[in-house]
Nucleic acid binder design. Structure first.
Length: 659
RNA sequence: GCGGUGGUGGUGUAGCCGGUUAACAUAUCGCCCUGUCAAGGCGAAGAUCGCGGGUUCGAGUCCCGUCCACCGCGCCA
């Protein structure tokens, strides 16, 4: 049996490479393209080897990718294969737009010149799979199509063969129209054919490849950890997997590889990462799926600063190398937890716009407004949010404007919302619900403190923490949406630091770890663990971008006695703790190095880089909000024999009885 | 678990203060057409209005229940 390359090669460059992999379908290994545009399938370049032959039979069904053909190919005979993207039958001349992953190519089939090919082409319909042999031709002058990358050329077909026919798809593949999402999910394999999804998954691939290359160069090892692991009752609900071999016992899918990566540090691997799947059985959101992907990583002999700098460098390079998006600030701003809560009411503020809350308690307490005076007396803050230019509307509009936001504030527990309107011209009258309680001198102080300009509106809020935080957050988000303040092309990263280590849980009457129970306290605060646990700051850090938490991590506790102390504070008695985390405590007695890590969420990161509104758009096969895979109908019932083998009996409530 | 929005030919929408034959675009099918590229022209077919119940002389439309999708709250160490 003779195996070789065909001799009528079209590309000297690829002859030398002798590579059987279509070059255009691989991704540039070392030099990622500068811009997002370079990610488009239409930009993939097709240097392509000759067809592979075995005993003279061509086994590779294409010599070039559709989207790769350019003027330089004019005159060459090529074979392409792909899906019918669109077709236009003009009688004696049929145009087929043939699509493969690299892009779209117009094929012209002439009845007079190629009657057989033409006869087949007239039958072809959307999404049929065709193989077409033809000659690349420069398009006639004036017939170029600048909207597609191959628009200067077209293929004059000499032979058409139908590799497969296709039913009419349930929705348009060739348009970016909105389609009901349940339909997209049911036919996800068709949805994934669409350009938007291909672009997103290619970007996702590039981000992950970039991360692997970057961390490899930094001395990290990629190490896999088990998917079948052990349940840990804290945190989110676990997905459980019954054991056949051990009746009545269960594995749990990892909520994250947290414990394992710390054990890898004890094991001396020093720098670990993994593109890790994580599982949490909680209700869904646009940025939450039951299974999601983290870049899980951990480093030994590092301090907080080392982790922050490494991640920051990586994120900046990802954005600048793989996208056209602008970074709002670099280095990334660093904000303390207290600062973000007081100013933005959220530990993941969207910094693309200001709308920061400013504490005006000192001024408000001098006003005649009892609500503000009482608030300050009770130790609660009075805060102002400046809304630039919002005062330039009629009195009626303003009242409507204010009451709409007052309603939002009430929805999060606020009792009311005061407002002041600065006149557009100097000397004009200051209006608004609380204007009469502030003397002109106090008003001036207020405007100075908030740097208010003519025509601005000031919203004034007085409430106890943490209710006021929720009010600030909801005001910022909804104002930014109404006034279009968030530039979609900007990536506003920041670090949130100095979280409290513990939060008081009044229901359970104990302290809860605010991050997780392996987070180390800030060394200066360690002495407060006994006297004032609520004041202890943790060595925790979150990376925030555009209002989303895109990474969270901490420096860990590596000493057994400190770890035991934390267990005590959160109400875990040592018998319990040993049962659940005995392996960790024991490991820490065998020379655990100081270590820390972080875990960026890949789905959220790619979502932001792609400019998508939810993570389903960057996941190939996501689940619905009810955690259902609409394509395969998972979860599903199982056969009684399967349950029997697992020693499991169902105890369903009547209404949940399976049919 | 709670609240909100939506579900109408294959797809996307209109119809919603109840009233004759459920409208439009597109896709699909047929015929015509040799420079189209969101092709065009002519014609055809295609909908028990998510499902179940109720009110009514009469329900896509009103009411109740239910299912599904999405958004948010709770939840998510």
């Amino acid at each position: 049996m003779a195996i070789g390359w065909t001799t009528n090669s079209t590309s000297p460059a690829t002859r030398a490479s002798g590579c059987a992999t279509p070059a255009a379908l691989t991704c540039a290994a070392r030099v990622p393209p500068r811009a997002l545009a370079a990610l488009l399938p239409t930009r993939l370049r097709g240097t392509f080897p000759r067809a592979l032959t075995i005993e003279g039979q061509i086994v590779m069904l294409k010599t070039h990718h559709c989207g790769s053909l350019r003027q330089e190919h004019v005159g060459q005979q090529v074979t392409v294969a792909g899906w019918v993207h669109n077709w236009r039958d003009q009688g004696g001349l049929v145009f087929l737009d043939l699509r493969d992953r690299s892009g779209v190519l117009q094929v012209a089939i002439d009845r007079e010149k190629q009657p057989e090919a033409h006869a087949l082409a007239t039958q072809a319909r959307s999404e049929w799979v065709l193989q077409i042999v033809g000659t690349v031709v420069r398009r006639p002058a004036g017939m170029e199509n600048p909207n597609i990358a191959t628009g200067e050329v077209e293929l004059h077909a000499s032979a058409v063969s139908v590799l497969n026919r296709a039913k009419t798809p349930p929705f348009y593949i060739n348009r970016d129209d909105r389609v009901e999402e349940s339909l997209r999910l049911r036919y996800r394999y068709l949805d994934l054919r669409r350009e938007r999804m291909q672009r997103n998954l290619i970007l996702r691939h590039r981000v992950i490849k970039f991360i692997r290359d970057f961390l490899d160069a930094e001395g990290f090892l990629e190490i896999e950890t088990p998917i079948l692991f052990k349940t840990t009752p804290e945190g989110a609900r676990d997905y459980l997997v019954p054991s056949r071999v051990h009746p009545g016992k269960f594995y749990a899918l990892p909520q994250s590889p947290q414990q394992l990566k710390q054990l890898l540090m004890v094991a001396g691997y020093e720098r670990y990462f993994q593109i890790a799947r994580c599982f949490r059985d909680e209700d869904q959101r646009g940025d939450r799926q039951p299974e999601f992907t983290q870049l899980d990583m951990e480093m030994s002999f590092v301090e907080r600063e080392d982790v922050l700098q490494l991640i920051e460098r990586m994120m900046i390079e990802i954005v600048e190398t793989l996208t056209d998006r602008q970074l709002l600030a670099k280095p990334f701003p660093r904000l303390t937890y207290q600062e973000v809560m007081e100013r933005f009411g959220s530990d993941k503020p969207d910094l693309r716009y200001d709308l920061a809350a400013i504490d005006v308690s000192e001024i408000a307490t001098q006003s005649d407004f009892a609500v503000f005076k009482d608030a300050v007396t009770a130790g609660n803050p009075v805060k102002a949010i400046r809304v630039p230019g919002a005062g330039n509307q009629s009195g009626g509009q303003l009242r409507k404007f204010h009451s709409a936001y007052e309603e939002r504030v009430r929805a999060v527990g606020g009792k009311g919302l005061g407002y002041l309107v600065l006149p557009a011209e100097a000397g004009g009258e200051v209006k608004g619900s609380v204007a009469k309680f502030f003397s002109p001198e106090l008003q001036a102080l207020l405007f100075e403190a908030t740097q208010a300009q003519p025509g601005d509106v000031l919203f004034l809020l007085a409430e106890a923490r943490p209710v006021i935080y929720g009010m600030i957050d909801v005001l910022r988000r909804s104002l930014a949406e109404e006034f279009n303040l968030a530039d979609p092309n900007t990536m506003a990263f920041c670090w949130t630091l100095d979280f409290p280590l513990m939060e008081w849980n009044p229901d359970e009457n104990r302290w809860d770890p605010s991050h997780h129970l392996f987070t180390a306290p800030v060394p200066e605060d360690e002495h407060l663990l006994d006297s004032a646990p609520g004041q202890v700051r943790g060595q925790q850090y979150d990376l925030v971008c555009n209002g989303y938490e895109v990474a969270g991590g901490s420096i860990r506790i590596h000493r057994q006695e400190l770890q035991e102390k934390i267990f005590g504070l959160i109400g875990l008695d040592m018998v319990d703790a040993k049962e659940r985390f005995g392996h960790m405590l024991e490991a820490f007695t065998y020379g655990a190095p100081p270590h820390g890590g972080i875990a960026p969420g890949i789905d959220r990161l790619v979502m932001l880089l792609a400019g998508e509104p939810n993570i389903r758009e960057v996941i190939a096969f996501p689940k619905s909000q009810m955690a259902i895979d609409l394509m395969v109908s998972a979860p599903s019932e199982v056969y009684p024999e399967q349950l029997e083998e697992l020693s499991i009996q169902l105890a369903l409530a009547d209404e949940a009885e399976p049919e």
